[in-house]
Design a protein around this nucleic acid. Structure first.
Length: 559
RNA sequence: AGCGGGAUGGGGCAGCCUGGUAGCCCGCCGGGCUCAUAACCCGGAGGUCGGUGGUUCGAAUCCACCUCCCGCUACCA
């Protein structure tokens, strides 16, 4: 089976926070799972770097947008590496392959007759010399008198507005009074595809409930043509005749990155012919890990574009959308500094702690909440005590009572039974992953540790060793091989710790696939035993976080 | 306003699609063990599953209405 696995492209006007990281981690866990299940996988993402917010951020800093995104792309790529994200290609929307691909793609869609032009009136800032997106116009709400209403909506009374409704409109960047200017734009004729999209969504069983209901509601309400172009300088030039000076609207090109990134990957490894084997083969499945705010782009606009190109691209097999992650009960907020940013997280604790907890609370059914209290509890009770301690008690038993060598004995009935039970559970882990229930899967993984602890307790090898060496040998051999199996699953969720554990266990040949997980190995000399995890203290972590911010040691603190 | 999601023992959550005497982690009480990072294991107390009405032999689970909370509304990516 072939898979294209992707996570939403982070918009890199800033360092991503933990909410964004959830999608990235989820996709990584899934990609690792697929590879271990023996499937062919191409796992891609990239930096989304065009559009007005980036232009404005660059203006603020007095550098060019490209200088800004060069710097951010490099920084964020590095962070993903440190989080162990196993991308085959993490690229960017400025990549020549992407730019070229987008232009060609839209020319095709244009030729196929799905794009039309229309003149519109828009607010323009004569001072900054840019057209202002609705959100970048502020003024007084004509309904409630709120003075800081945005051009699209009044944040106080909630009413939807047009920017031209505002009394005393001002440019959100410089405060100048905008003028109305006519401009021509190109539109994608989305409504044409309503029926096909509806059929596609209704026929797609994998879609999470939130994606299905949101998408169908939108289609039933009636889709509208989507504007494709902007008057921005920073972006991919629109390839249509008469569109000089226009760029493609970021969203309408960033989603195409899923295609271009795969293309680029196969060009890089010099197998360009593989591209079509993935993207144009009905047997390939593609899956996108995103937050609920992105649903319409992945279930409606992206599939519609793929259909409109008439190139035979496969439609998404699943759009694994999650709800939101909150921080201490509130939304993450860059301006209010509420939340934890990726680079901060890595200064506080190794990546696997975050990988573990983020998947543990993955908001699959409803918004979930990051709280330091819960974080501390789950890391200490589950990761450290249940899992970490099982590993440590088994290995240190081997170390102290067996001179560090796993016995070369045979397994007795009880030991075999325990491993059978673990194998059953392992099946659940795989099944949950298959169903995109990452949370359940991780919790089942922890259940394996409980099996191990229960077994070790009931067999009491520390007593047995004095009277019944043979039985103890079996206990130890079985426990060791349970751990060995567990490393294979651990590697999906916590790759760094799994690597460490492999070394500590003296395993030359790692169980790289699930099919190899439950083999029995004997007479192995283990390495020096050290605890794999440690407990955390929320007070200390919070203090450390405040310290990082004060000293501005990392990029997200500087902004 | 419209649309969507949520309401389950003290706290945090799963179960609801495919109805059949409520499950997980923490906390609490009692016990076991001492190999292990004061870690591990066993047992127990604690819930009329937001409210009302309906369908059904039977509803946390399906339907209707209601209350409270949250998110989104497509040029903030």
């Amino acid at each position: 089976m072939r898979w294209i696995i992707a996570s939403a492209w982070p918009y890199i006007n800033a360092v991503p926070h933990l909410g964004t990281l959830i999608q990235v981690l989820s996709s990584d866990v899934y990609a690792r799972y697929r590879r271990k299940a023996g499937d062919e996988v191409v796992f891609v993402s990239g930096s989304d770097e065009h559009g007005t917010p980036i232009e404005i951020e660059a203006i603020k800093r007095g550098i060019s947008p490209r200088e800004l995104t060069d710097k951010m792309h490099e920084y964020v790529s590095g962070l993903f590496r440190k989080f162990g994200i196993s991308y085959d290609n993490y690229t960017r929307t400025e990549s020549p392959t992407h730019v070229e691909f987008v232009k060609e793609f839209y020319l095709k869609v244009y030729k196929n007759g799905h794009i039309f032009e229309k003149e519109t009136e828009q607010l323009y800032c004569p001072n900054d010399k840019i057209f202002l997106p609705d959100r970048f116009v502020v003024g007084t709400c004509p309904y409630c008198g709120y003075e800081k209403a945005h051009g699209d909506q009044c944040d106080r009374c909630g009413r939807l507005l047009n920017p031209t409704d505002l009394i005393n409109p001002r440019c959100a960047i410089c405060g100048a009074t905008p003028i109305i200017k006519r401009t021509k734009h190109w539109f994608f004729d989305l409504p044409k595809f309503s029926d096909q999209l509806k059929e596609y969504i209704e026929g797609n069983d994998q879609l999470p409930d939130n994606a299905r209901s949101t998408s169908l509601a939108m289609i039933n309400d009636g889709l509208k043509p989507r504007s494709l172009t902007r008057d921005n300088k920073w972006g991919i030039p629109a390839p249509f005749s008469g569109a000089k000076g226009k760029t493609i609207y970021v969203w309408m090109e960033a989603v195409l990155g899923y295609v271009s990134a795969v293309k680029e990957h196969f060009n890089q490894i010099e197998k360009p012919e593989e591209f079509e084997k993935f993207w144009k083969n009905k047997e390939t499945k593609s899956v996108y890990f995103i937050g609920k705010d992105n649903i319409p782009f992945h279930t409606i606009i992206f599939p519609a574009l793929l259909i409109a190109s008439n190139e035979g691209y496969i439609l998404p097999y699943n759009v694994a959308s999650t709800e939101f992650l909150l921080y201490e009960g509130d939304k993450f907020s860059k301006s209010e500094r509420r939340g934890i940013w990726m680079d901060e997280a890595l200064v506080l604790l190794p990546a696997d702690y975050w990988r573990f907890y983020m998947i543990y609370i993955r908001p699959e059914h409803k918004d979930s909440n990051f709280s330091w209290e819960d974080f501390e509890a789950k890391i200490n009770d589950e990761l450290n005590d249940t899992l970490g301690n099982l590993i440590h008690r088994v290995l240190s038993f081997i170390s102290s009572k067996y001179g560090g060598e796993v016995p070369g004995t045979c397994l007795d009935g009880e030991s075999k039974k325990m491993l059978e039970e673990a194998k059953e559970l392992a099946k659940n882990i795989e099944d949950s992953l298959e169903d995109f229930k990452l949370r359940d899967s991780l919790r089942n993984f922890l259940e394996m540790a409980r099996i191990g602890n229960r077994f070790f307790n009931s067999r009491e090898p520390w007593k047995d060793i004095k009277e019944n060496k043979k039985r103890t040998d079996s206990t130890v051999l079985a426990s060791y091989n349970l751990l060995r199996a567990m490393t294979c699953y651990m590697h999906v969720f916590m790759p760094f710790s799994a690597e460490k554990l492999w070394n500590m266990m003296g395993l030359q040949k790692k169980p790289a696939n699930f099919s190899e997980a439950f083999g029995i190995v004997k007479s192995i000399k283990i390495g020096k035993v050290k605890p794999l995890f440690h407990k955390v203290s929320k007070e200390e972590l919070i203090k450390k976080l405040e310290d990082i911010r004060e000293r501005k040691k990392i990029l997200s603190s500087i902004e």
